[in-house]
Amino acid sequence: MNIFRLAGDMTHLASVLVLLLKIHTIKSCAGISLKTQELYALVFATRYLDIFTDFISLYNTTMKLIFLGSSFSIVWYIRNHKIVSRSYDKSQDTFRHYFLIIPCLLLALLVNEKFTFKEVMWAFSIYLEAVAILPQLVLLQRTRNIDNLTGQYVFLLGAYRALYILNWIYRYFTETHYVHWITWVSGLVQTLLYADFFYYYFESWKNNKKLQLPA
């Protein structure tokens, strides 16, 4: 475990906490894409199939449980909680899941580390995570007033991905045989998707103005 990896995981954890804070305390999910949250739940469910079979470390297992538990509870809150679900604007969140799920599944069947159920599901989860933010980014563009917590949530998610890239660079130079093309290419694509958002996030921060993405 290196500092970039730990910082990346902590940033990821922070993004989840920010979202849970918004949902639990403010009882609102305004500006949050349920589609993206459902895709994340699917990402973790398919990636962590090894949770009970391969023990890596207590840290690893704990984090997996946190990401699984939080992603499914966020989806539950947005869909079913009496007050929270009222702030969900379905008409704005129109992205179709299967536009992302089907190509990722096909790609995972073609490009994987090993042609086994677990490995294909793992590759699928990596590809799906790379594009899962798209419904959220589309929703942000449609939202005239992006509240601070939503902006911070997306920023933290993007920062987590950028830190993972630094982690891979570090590991490549410090470990022997550390080469993972599937995660590297998908991770790079995923981080690039945030580039536009980052630009406007920093602009709004620099000029002390409310975040707004051009339509």
Binding site: H12, N60, Y164
Partner: peptide, 10 residues
Amino acid sequence: LLEEKHHDEL
């Protein structure tokens, strides 16, 4: 041979 730790990232 040590078995490679598979997918140790989250």
